[in-house]
Design a protein around this nucleic acid. Structure first.
Length: 229
DNA sequence: GCGACAG
DNA sequence: ATCTTGTCGC
């Protein structure tokens, strides 16, 4: 598989990335409800790295939203486009993720990202960024609370508490499995927080992490291993 | 100034 | 994210 390069116009440093983030942030749509749960497609996106070899592999896995069966898979391998900087994760993942999305023939439907959307220092995390660039509905489901604060939600699946940034609800700590650490859901683009959580619950009938992310995680690791040779 | 900090 | 074996438990 061909290795895609870093886009010519990609931000070269933090200052440039912050400027792009600021410009794109204005295109975020936060007043839509998003698609109903269980209909159409849901697409999981994830990335794996080999910094030593300057490689990044991305996977996009399209699932039937009703049955959670795999409809289509696609991968892309690229060059690392940015170092990991908290708050600028999108610049590290997006070029390769977009290439994987472009390789799909099926309608991706709702994009489920491994990270944050609105829950971000400047309210524009990976999910929002990807949503704006593609025009698609997106949500972010992260495994860690980043810098935000939250109270421990109740122990039952579906229980949640607000994820707070200076008192503002930027997402939710959502319990997807009883007695297991919650996941951290935030809105990406064109969807409400309540609906983002409803989708997350529909994607976690068995494990803490959404089926979309689990599948994409396994696939991008495989793609990276193949790229290594 | 120092530490924390999605993946 | 990644470096990494076995192991306890359902």
């Amino acid at each position: 598989m061909a290795i895609i390069g870093v886009p010519a116009d990609w931000p070269a440093d933090e200052a440039a990335a912050l400027a792009v983030q600021h410009a794109l942030r204005g295109r975020l749509v936060l007043d839509e409800d998003g698609p109903p749960v269980g209909e159409g497609h849901v697409t999981g996106l994830d990335v794996a790295y080999d910094d030593a070899r300057d490689l990044v592999a991305a996977a996009a896995v399209v699932l039937d939203a009703g049955t959670l069966e795999v409809v289509e898979e696609a991968t892309a391998v690229g060059r690392v486009s940015f170092p990991y900087v908290p708050g600028l994760l999108a610049f590290r993942e997006i070029p390769t993720v977009l290439a994987a999305l472009d390789a799909l023939t099926a309608d991706p439907g709702l994009l489920v990202c491994d990270g944050y959307g609105l829950a971000h220092p400047r309210r524009f995390g990976l999910a929002g960024h990807l949503g704006v660039l593609t025009g698609r509905v997106s949500i972010g489901v992260a495994k860690n609370p980043f810098t935000f604060s939250y109270e421990q939600p109740g122990g039952e699946r579906g229980d949640f508490t607000p994820l707070l940034a200076q008192g503002e609800e930027v997402g939710r700590a959502l319990r997807t499995r009883r007695g297991v650490k919650p996941v951290f859901v935030s809105v990406g683009h064109r969807i409400s927080l309540a609906n983002a959580c409803a989708h997350t619950l529909a994607l976690t009938p068995r494990y803490r992490i959404p089926e979309t992310t689990r599948r994409a995680d396994a696939l991008c690791r495989r793609a990276l291993a193949e790229a290594r040779g």
